[in-house]
Amino acid sequence: MTDWQWFIIDILQAFAAGLLVGGTYGLMCVGLGIIFGVMRVVNFAHGDFMMLGMYAAYYLVTGFGVLAFLGPYVAPIVGALLAGPIVFAIGWVLHRFLIANVTGARVVSAEAEGHYAQIILTLGIALVLANGGLILFGSLPISVQTPLSRESWAIGEVLLNKARTVSFFIAVAVAILLYMFLTRTSLGKALRAAADNPIAAAYVGVDVDRAHRLAFGLGVGITAIAGGLIASSQSFQPYIGFDFVIVMYAGVVLGGMGSILGAFWGGLTIGLVQQMSTLVLPYQLQNTAIFVVFLLIIFFRPQGMFGRVWERT
């Protein structure tokens, strides 16, 4: 093959990688988008909930092998999906007993709308989860074993990693289902209303406390599914949450706060920028490229790609 052909393949390959990585980023961001974008709760422990999702998937598939009967191809996918409800429950409980104290209607009038308290509280939770993870799971990096992660489908000369491709489609499907749930069902609408404007929602008869718990659980659960999907491509240890939490916040802001679909596009954009920047920039500046693109988009479109028009008064 000529150099020129290889050049085209390089570009397509990087694009494909960006798209496939971006898909799971997108789903991750959707989860945070519910909590940070819509509920406006600053959750620094979000990456650690994702870490819990990864371990949940690992123990279901590889560790305890509950799902081993499904075979090495199906089990990791089912494991990832089941990580969602498990982390949902953890999120629900933590919200009920801790986070609810610093969020929602009761802190609207507090200093900075309770964000200060949220920041430290969730940082505290992040510390407990990551270090508790070290005690419970150990420091050894592990991953969900599947042959999918080392095989690919070829489209011409462009190779699509099977695990990533499957993850991509599952991520898109989960995001679409969630979107339909939030926009088409009455429970979903009530959740959004309560998250968006707790006081108004209370007036129209929504049980705001319950809705907030559900929304928070949903947010961390969705991100946990994304974590479960990544767990079959990447190895992880209890401190991994930290590596992802920044990407997630960047994605949510990029997409536009308050927009669920925007969060998905934001995550996808970050995946694409991360992988495609390597075509022109030194590989080392991969993450710098993310932040530069992030800043540029924010400066030229302060409400994000899909955010609502922001009014000053």
Binding site: I9, A14, A16, L20, V21, Q275, Y283, Q284, L285, Q286
Partner: peptide, 14 residues
């Protein structure tokens, strides 16, 4: 030269 951790190394191995 890359900055760890990687999220994917397709372009590198490509």
């Amino acid at each position: 030269i890359f900055t760890p951790p990687l999220s994917d190394c397709t372009p590198l191995i490509q």
